[in-house]
């Protein structure tokens, strides 16, 4: 094993410790993001397990720099050092990502609409498919495009509305703002429901 691999293994270990015990200054991440980074259906706590490393580092850095605003996450991110940010990002990125359910969830009219927008987009409004930027099956395109498949519906809906309202604006080139502005309230419900368990 190279020293680099050793170092990165040690980082992830240190990251794991932070997620379970906190840092003294920061609350343990698992209290909100789940024991294995799986997020929580209620409360809008996102899944972090299997998310891209660069994306996680960027978000924690953005919270710290106040270019992404959230009253729960901000105070926690503020206490993390650059090294700690890299450690937790390494750890969460190393966990298994979301996998499609073994027995597929039955389609509803709402999930069918969600699937249409996710896989095909809405070109009448000039909106590309979500997966054109978030990867073939929503698993993300490293380093800039996060995984969104298997993400909590409450969280996705909240982010899309934040972009519409301008309360989240840390997306590069305003790419997500351009997308969110083309979604109706019904579109957002349909997409969020579908993305929690996409095919």
């Amino acid at each position: 094993m190279s020293t680099h691999a050793n170092a990165s293994y040690a980082d992830a270990q240190a990251g794991a410790a932070i997620t379970k015990n906190g840092t003294g200054a920061a609350t343990a991440c698992m209290q909100c993001h789940g024991a294995n980074g799986e997020g929580q259906a209620t409360g809008g706590f996102p899944r972090l397990a299997g998310q891209g490393r660069n994306y996680l580092v960027k978000q924690l850095t953005d919270f710290k720099a106040k270019s992404r605003i959230n009253p729960l996450m901000q105070p926690i991110a503020n206490t993390l050092t650059t090294a700690q940010i890299n450690d937790v990002a390494d750890y969460y990125a190393s966990l298994p990502g979301w996998k499609p359910a073994a027995s597929p969830v039955p389609d509803t009219a709402q999930t069918a609409r969600g699937a249409q927008l996710t896989h095909r987009g809405n070109w009448d409004k000039g909106m590309p498919a979500c997966f054109a930027c978030h990867g073939e099956n929503g698993a993300g395109i490293a380093p800039h495009f996060p995984a969104i498949a298997g993400q909590r519906a409450t969280y996705i809906a909240k982010q899309l509305k934040n972009w519409q309202a301008g309360t989240r604006s840390n997306d590069p080139q305003g790419l997500m703002k351009a997308v969110a502005d083309k979604l109706s309230a019904d579109d957002i419900s349909a997409i969020s429901a579908y993305l929690e368990n996409p095919k």
Partner: peptide, 23 residues
Amino acid sequence: QANCALCHGADGLGTKVNGQYAF
């Protein structure tokens, strides 16, 4: 660099996922 590199790469050679070009 400001508008295209994010997806098509700073080197213009695209971005691959699992051996296929995503960009």
